[in-house]
Amino acid sequence: MYTTVNEDGVLNNYATEPQMYYAEYPAIWEQRKYVIQGVFATLIVTTLVLVGLSVS
């Protein structure tokens, strides 16, 4: 932890910053998984909208 003191004697504590890294492009199997998740999410939302319209 990094601590500073100003002229009034007030302490300021700063957390240590984590090391930065660049995100990696998702692999093919990860991309397929995201597509499948998107399809299921779309089906769920569509089903909920259609059920809501049919009930009202």
Rank of each mutant, 00 (worst) to 15 (best):
D8K: 09
S56Y: 13
L11N: 06
N6Y: 10
E17M: 03
T16C: 11
T4K: 10
N13A: 08
K33Q: 06
G38P: 01
N13Y: 04
M1G: 11
L43W: 13
G38A: 04
E17T: 10
A15K: 06
L43Y: 03
G9W: 13
P18Q: 03
Y22N: 10
E7D: 09
F40P: 02
I28V: 05
V45G: 08
V5D: 09
I44C: 07
V45I: 15
E17K: 12
E30G: 13
V39G: 01
W29G: 07
V55Y: 11
G52C: 07
I28M: 04
N6Q: 03
V10G: 03
Q31T: 04
T3A: 07
F40S: 13
V5N: 12
Y22W: 12
I36S: 02
I44A: 08
Q31R: 03
N6C: 04
L50C: 10
A23L: 04
W29V: 06
T47L: 15
V39R: 03
V55D: 05
L43D: 07
P26T: 12
M1W: 02
I28P: 00
V45Y: 09
F40T: 12
I28C: 06
N12A: 15
D8E: 12
L53P: 01
Y2M: 09
A23W: 00
L53Y: 11
M20I: 11
V49E: 00
I36G: 05
Q37K: 15
L43E: 08
E7C: 06
P26V: 13
Y25T: 11
S56Q: 07
E24K: 11
P18K: 01
G9L: 07
D8S: 15
Y14R: 02
F40C: 14
N13M: 05
Y21V: 15
T42A: 13
Y25K: 08
L48C: 13
G52Y: 06
T16N: 11
Q19D: 01
I36L: 09
R32C: 01
I44W: 04
L53Q: 04
A27E: 05
S54L: 10
S54P: 01
T42R: 00
Y25D: 08
P18E: 02
L53D: 00
